[in-house]
Design a protein around this nucleic acid. Sequence first.
DNA 1: GAGTTTGAAACT
DNA 2: CAGTTTCAAACTC
Length: 836
Amino acid sequence: MESPEGDRIKASSSSTSASSPAVQDSPFFNYLSNLSPIQSVKAARYAQRFFESRFPTPPPVFRSPHVDLQRETSFLKSNDVDAGGSDVYGYHSNQVNNKLIACLQKEVQPSSPSACVDEYLTDPVEVEDSKISADLRVQPTNNVGQLLRCGFTGPRENIQKVNDANNGNPEDCVLMLPEQSRVNMPSSLNLVETADYQAESSTLPVSGAENPEQHVTQIVKLQNAGIQHNEQDGSCQLLPESLQSVEAYQDCSDSSRPVSKGSFKEATLYQRGIRRHLQFEAPVVCKSITTHKSHSSHNVIQEVDNSKVPASHTGLESLIFSDVDPGEVSNGRESISYSPTIASWTSFSSSEFVGSNQHSRSLAISGPIPSDSGLHLKSIGRSGPMDSDLIPRLKLSGYMSSKDHGRRDCLAKDSNRSLFSPEAGETHAHVDNYQQDNQTIVETGSAASQCNESMKSLCDSLHMTPSKQGVSSECRILISRNTERVEELNQVSPKTKRQAINAGEGDGCKRCNCRRSKCLKLYCECFAAGVFCVDSCACKDCFNKPEYEDTVLDLRQQIESRDPLAFAPKIVKHATNSPANIVEDGNWTTPASARHKRGCNCKKSKCLKKYCECYQANVGCSDGCRCEDCSNSFGKKADSVYRRVQRWENPSADGTKSGTLKQFSPRWEDLPDISHFTPLSLPYPKVLASSASPISDYQEVPHAQLHQGSTLKSSSGHRHWHSSMSFMPHLCESSAGHGCSSDSAFHDLLKDDDMPETLKETSTPTKTIKVSSPNQKRVSPPQSRSQELRSSSSPGLRSGRKFILQAMPSFPPLTPYMKSKNDTGRSDLKGEASDH
DNA sequence: GAGTTTGAAACT
DNA sequence: CAGTTTCAAACTC
C-alpha cells in the first residue's frame, strides 16, 4: 500500500488480473452465470460478495463489519495494489471537474478503445497491460498543472483533454465519450460517463445511441456476469472508488485541495478510511441501486437501444442497470415490480438530473452529501438484502474499499471508467436519493412529474439536512486526503483549522478535538463517524489515522460487538416532523434500531441546543428519545403521534408526556415507529434493522402493514423495502407540503383513522421491531427483531424471505465482526485506547 | 481563550 | 440494568 504507484500498481494490477480470470473461469462463476433467475440471483450476489471479499479489508470503520469479514478473509491480497491506487483518490480530489472525468476515458484508450473494452471484459492480461499503459498515460499529458492537480495519474490526462475539450472543443469530449462508452465502458459506467459528459458539454449526444446494441450487450453481460466483470477488470471496482473520491471531492467541493502525487500513500490510507466510511454508507447506494434494479432490465435495455433517452438518462439507466447487477436482472420479482420505476426514473434523470448536470454540473457533485444521505447509505447498506447487487453499485459509487486496490489497474485502463465513475457515482448517489422519491412515486403510482418534485424535495432535504456522519464522512475523506496539503498551503494553526473545520462542518465535515480518548472512542466524532481524523482535527495523541488503521478497526469491532449500531447514524431525520421524515427514518436512513438507537436524553437543554443530538441534526425528537421537557423546535417528542393520541383520548392528561405516554403500552411508545411502519416504510426499517434477514423481515412486514391504509401504497410488498422504503421518505417530503408532510397532518390522519387501534394491531410487529428498551438506551440487535417478525410473517412471505435472505448480504452490525487481520502491534494501541 | 454546562459514552 | 464516571462538544463569559 505504501508504495506509491507505478510498480506497485502494476504488480497489483497483475495480481488482480491474474486472480480475476481464475475466478471467472471458476466453476462457481459459471454456475452462477447459468443459474436460474432466482438462483442466479443468489449466485450473482454471492459472486459479488466474492468480489467484495476480494477487496481490501473492508474497514469496519466505515462500513458494516459483516460484509467486510468476508472481504478481509479472503480476497484482500490485492489491496496492496489498491493502496497504490490511492492516487485514484487523489485524482478524484484533485479533479473537481466532472467533465474532466468524463473525458478520461479517452485518454485511457489511447490505442484502441474497442480493444480496451474487450480487454476489460475478456482478457485480464490485456487489462493489466492497459493499466500499465494507463499509468504511463500520465506522462503524455501536456498539462502538467492539471495532472498535478489530479492526484490520479491516469485520469489526469483524460482530465486535461477533457478540460481542453470543454474549454475549446466540447465535441471532442463528446465524441470520445461515445466511443469509450461503447467500447470500454462496462455498459453502465460508460453510459453514465457519457451522460455526465454530455451534460457537461451540454451537448446531449446519447452515448448509447450510436451503438445501442453494444451497450445492451454489455449491459446484459454485466448483468449476467456483473460480478465477473468486476472481477476481471476490477474496473467496476475502480469506479466505485473513483466515484467515492469524486463524491468526496464534490461533497467537500473544496476546489483547493491539490493532491500531490507523492501523497499516494496517504491517499491510500485515507482511502481506506474513506472506503470504510463510504462502505458504511455505501448501503445507500446499494439501496438506490436496488431500486434501479427494480427497473426491468428489459426496459432499461430498450431504453438504451433506443438511445432516445437523454444522455443523462442513458447514463443513469445504464448506471443503474449495470450497477444493478445481475442479481436484479435474474431476480424476476424485482424486475417486474420495478419496471415502472424506469419510467419515473428516466423522467427523473432527464429532467432533474440532467438539468442539474447541464445547468450546474457541479451541483450534484459539488454539493456536499447531506448527512442524511450518508445515513441512508448506511442504512441501506445494512439493509443488506441487496448486498450482492449493491456491491457493484457500491463500487460505482466508490464505496467499495477493497476494490480500490484492484482498481488501480483498472484505472489505468479504466481510467475512463474511474473518471467517469466518479460522476456516475455521484450521480448515482444523488439518484439514490432521488430514486427513493421516484421509486416511491412509482410505486405509489404517481406520475413521473411528481418524481421531479420529490426529487427536488430530496435535493432540498439533502442540502438542508446535513447530518454529521453522512456528510462529514465524505468531507472527511476529502479532508483527509487534502488536509495536509491544504494545511501546508494555508499554514493553518490548529485553531484556525478547527475554525475552518467548523466552517466546513457546514459542509458536513467533522473534526474532533479529542484530548484523552485518542480518537478511538465514540467520544470522537471522527471515530464515531467512521472516518479518520484529519489534520484539521485538533485532537491529541490521535490514533484514528490511517497509520493505525488496524487499531482503529479493532476498536471499532470491539465497540460494535458491544453495540452493533454504535456506528450507525445516531440520528436520522426522523419522526419528528413529518410522516415523510418518519418514512425516511424507517426507510433508508438507518435501521429502525439505529434510528432510535438512543434518541436523545436531554434533561436540561430541552432539546433546544446542540447538546441534543436530535436538535443538532435538525430533527425532531421521537419516541425513541428519553428527553425531558422536550422543546425541540424540529419536533417535540411529546408531539409525537402517541402523545397526540393521548391528548386526544385524554385531554386532561396532556401535560406530561412521559407520564401519560408511558401509560400507553410500549406500543404506543412505538407509535412513531409505527408511523414509520406505514406500509412502505415499515418493511425497510426492519430490513435495515435486521442484518440477518433484512429482506425477509421487510417483506413480511410490508404486507401486514400495507393494509393499514396509508396513502402510500407499494405496488408490491416485497419491493417496498427498496423502492418504497428508500423513496418514500422523499416522496413524503416532497409531498410533505401537500399531504403527508406535517406531523399534524400525519397524526391527524392517524387520528381520523382511529389509528390507536390500528396502531395497536400493528404495534405488535412494531414493537418487535423496536427492540430498544423503554429507555432505548441500547438497541437490541436486529436479529431478534427479524425473528419476531418472522414469527408473525405469513408462510408465503417466509418463502419470499428465504429467497431474499439468500440474496441479501448479512447486515453488518448484527453479526459480530470478524477480524481477518492480525492484531499484532495493535494490542498496544488497543490497550492504550481501552485503558483510556 | 478559559471555564462551565451538557449529555453521550464508557465503566462499574 | 442502573448508577457513576469520563469525555468532548456546546456553550458562556
